[in-house]
Design a protein around this nucleic acid. Structure first.
Lengths: 357, 357
DNA sequence: ATGAAAGCGCTAACAC
DNA sequence: GTGTTAGCGCTTTCAT
């Protein structure tokens, strides 16, 4: 437990040292290194060469303090590890890097977690701008607003027009899914909601409901099971729906994670997909096409959403007025193998799942 | 496209303003706000009260520049969204917050991605210390070392003793799994490797091999399929193993993700688990207990690993000598329902998966 | 094209 | 206990 000797590490030289080596002032060195005008070609090249040789790299903290810029963005999300968020992150990170920015991530562990004051402070101060994938609750946005940092949301509440938003058309996407199922002949269609504190979940549910009613099918509340976009919630919801005395012939889920959970529960119960049960998801996460049978789903351009968020944010930072407060990207129904016409009523079969011991 | 008016946002006052309001010097205010000694009770309380009222919060950039401290840690990982990494992150974030630190995340998108110089710079400069979950390739650690930031690795190469490491005993964990399978009567046991550029994958494979040979079973290379810890690689590996002319009666996988993929492939092919095939994973990710049948697996204390990493890192920051360069946590075999004695040779059955059209 | 001066907002180190 | 001074490493602004 004795004090640890600071490890000897090649110290990073500071700007003044590079400038001295090049025989110029710090300002000239700064201009050269930041690729700014006002330095003659030969001087610029010499500075750059020396900086490389000396292993110089700018101190971002000092740079941020002096200039308020540091080419860092942040992305905050609940359920950072979910496939949907992961895909948005991929798109955002790539776009940021392409523009010469780095993206830092902040994960809220629990959907119900408060945004601690320190978090807002940290991300708002470390980054030049932030992308939020958060439910519109707990006044997350109030806290972020107070931090005074440029902010853009992805799939947030549409009512929240205070910040620019990148969204997809969950309503029409869901209705497309319903039309597909109904075209196959389904009439008893179950629905597993998403976390309805997220605007997307509300929209999709409306798509489900109106998809039904526009065909004159009456809403049956027992066919709607509450989920929160997570796998455990999907398992539970699917169990409830599939053990109904008069179960649905198809289940549409607010997202793919829950749809995959539904497929797992179905197979556990001995139902075959799509023969005994059709399943449709929403998102088109990578796993959707990897399972067996591959999942029919409503594709959201997740990576593009991340990319658009970054680009819009960068435009805001550049002082360019954002055209529209909410950019809505289209969805696309991807029909795969998890949907088929329903069996005739009463002809439902069960496989015996377990052999007698 | 006209320049955007900066949004009017309640400006955050600076330390000097709080100090002035309280009628003290900036230093006294600083001491009070940072909970440091040298301020009388009443003065301290008045400063805190005023700061709260005025909505003061310290400028972390200035604070870092002046003191080199900002109570921020960073965690860098490849496959940030994988369940294993996610769990480690949960443990790390909680532990950090408990200690009054915040944790920022940096995700490498692609296992083969180089660590761009800017990344090292960013995380090394923004944070006071970093936790790395990275393969020992591409000289990731060389870059991190150059940044001169306190660093700790999780499950990294054991040969890499330059940095403290939190690891689990992959070798014994894997051997326990093998002993379990062999105790059930399995002799033809397939193995799906992890990404062997990670030390964990090498250890586990050795556990598999020695588990076999210590029982006098000869290694059969055709029963070893290469995976990289991801689901698609697991699917492919499982397909290869299960379509062998003389397939294994059990498959042990380097991690749970691949084990779950194996279960999916098995069911697709019409094999029942555990009757026709036993499957064992490694990690005990949350999904392992949620699938049907629940997966037998070797549990790693993932959250605790994150917690230990944070605590060790904080100790390093505090100048406390780290006791041992590598802290190895134990694993635990969790026997669930995916393992059973093998069928008699030749009695393997297949369910007809699809009904005749 | 280049440089000098003056901070950015905070804290270390040392007074008193 | 409290205040003063002098930076942290960079960039802004304004000279030249």
């Amino acid at each position: 437990m004795s004090p640890m000797k600071p490890r000897v590490t090649t110290r990073i030289p500071k700007l003044a040292e590079v400038a001295r080596a090049a025989g110029v002032s710090r300002m000239t060195a700064s201009r050269a290194l930041n690729n700014r005008p006002g330095v003659s070609r030969p001087v610029r090249e010499e500075i750059l060469r020396l900086a490389g040789e000396m292993g110089y790299s700018v101190n971002l903290t000092a740079q941020k303090l002096a200039s308020r810029r540091n080419r860092i963005l942040a992305l905050v999300a609940v359920q950072m590890h979910s496939p949907y968020v992961s895909e948005v992150v991929v798109g955002a990170v790539r776009a940021a890097r392409m523009a010469g920015y780095e993206m830092l991530l902040y994960s809220l562990l629990d959907p119900d977690e408060q945004l601690p004051a320190t978090v807002t402070q940290v991300i708002g101060q470390i980054a030049q701008g932030v992308i939020a994938l958060l439910p519109y609750t707990h006044d997350y946005f109030g806290a972020l607003r107070a931090a005074g940092v440029p902010l853009i949301t992805v799939e947030s509440s549409v009512e929240l027009t205070e910040f620019p938003t990148i969204a997809t058309d969950g309503y029409n996407g869901a209705r497309d899914a319903m039309r597909h199922l109904m075209a196959l002949g389904h009439r008893r269609i179950g629905y597993i909601t998403g976390n309805e504190r997220m605007a997307s979940a509300v929209q999709r549910r409306r798509g489900y409901e109106n998809g039904l009613t526009e065909r004159g099918i009456r809403l049956d509340r027992t066919l709607i099971a509450r989920g929160d976009y997570t796998q455990p919630s999907g398992i539970e919801a699917a169990r409830r729906l599939l053990t109904l005395r008069h179960p649905p012939t198809a289940i549409f889920s607010g997202n793919d994670v829950q749809a995959l959970a539904t497929m797992a529960v179905a197979s556990e119960i001995g139902l075959r997909i799509p023969e005994d049960l059709s399943v449709v998801g929403f998102d088109d996460i990578p796993q959707a096409s990897q399972v067996h049978p591959p999942l029919t789903t409503v594709r959201q351009p997740m990576q593009q959403m991340g990319r658009s968020a970054v680009n819009t944010l960068l435009a805001m930072l550049a002082g360019i007025e954002v055209a529209s407060p909410v950019l809505t990207l289209p969805t696309e129904l991807v029909v795969r193998k998890s949907t088929a016409p329903p069996r005739k009523e009463g002809k439902r079969r069960r496989r015996d799942q377990r052999r007698p011991a």
